[in-house]
Amino acid sequence: MDELFGIPLPLLFGQLLLGLINGAFYAMLSLGLAVIFGLLNVINFTHGAQFMMGAFAAWMLLNWFGVNYWFALILVPIIIGATGIVLEKLMISRLYKLDHLYGLLLTFGIGLVIEGVFRNEFGSSGLPYRIPPELSGAWDLGFMFMPVYRGWVVVFAAAVCLATWLVIEKTRLGANLRAATENPALVQAFGINVPRMVTLTYGAGVALAALGGVLAAPIYSVNPQMGSNLIIVVFAVVVIGGMGSILGSVITGFGLGIIEGLTKVFYPEASATVIFVIMIIVLLARPAGLFGRTA
């Protein structure tokens, strides 16, 4: 059998693989969102802008300072993560006592401002960023031509997701973090500096978004609206996975990437909406999300 529902199997395999690659981006971004929401109770709508800033920072490092892709992979998350820490200290930390909605409005507004500033400075059509020479080229898989760089994205993103999960679930730091999520007052009473932990968590979530941006720079055009195109989808991924669930957002990210990829074969017109249809179905059946705990 070399066809399934009238689609040649090689083509189907290709689409599954491509879906997995997009899923890697969804997973990394939604992971950051989930970590931030888990501890801060803030829906970080600046996430898309921070993803975009990551891509632009990589571009600036390369073109202004001659810093190559590999160093950007380390430097950019640190730089953009630091801007996240400043943002949390100056603004977001003032909203913890208020309703979730205020955090959402603030971060959404900040995201729009950042996007506007970049658009003013760099225009909207985007900037070129070459694939690093070590990762250029492609493998012939028989059923499809697979660029080396995309393979790298999947492997690297999966490793980052796994590492984040291990840190949160298996280390002492992660245990403190989870405890602070449950009962901040009690954890503080044990002598742990909870506000500092919250700040660092936000910084780490932002760093994950920036890392996603560096990964995306060579394959998508580096433009100011690249984040806003993704953030709504990623938000849907978090909702489907269950707000604040680390594992849920990772699995859902990869899974939805694949479903979206398949939609592009069977009914391309719906590929931008399929995730939201799934979101509605999941919310109707399991309001807390696939991996969420009911409140």
Binding site: G19, F145, Y220, N229, K264, V265, P268, A272
Partner: peptide
């Protein structure tokens, strides 16, 4: 011909691979 959603599509690789096939 494949019709891609506008605006909001950033990854065209799936469509390009279909075209190639």
């Amino acid at each position: 011909a494949v019709r891609t959603p506008f605006p909001g599509t950033t990854d065209f690789s799936a469509f390009l691979v279909q075209a190639q096939a």
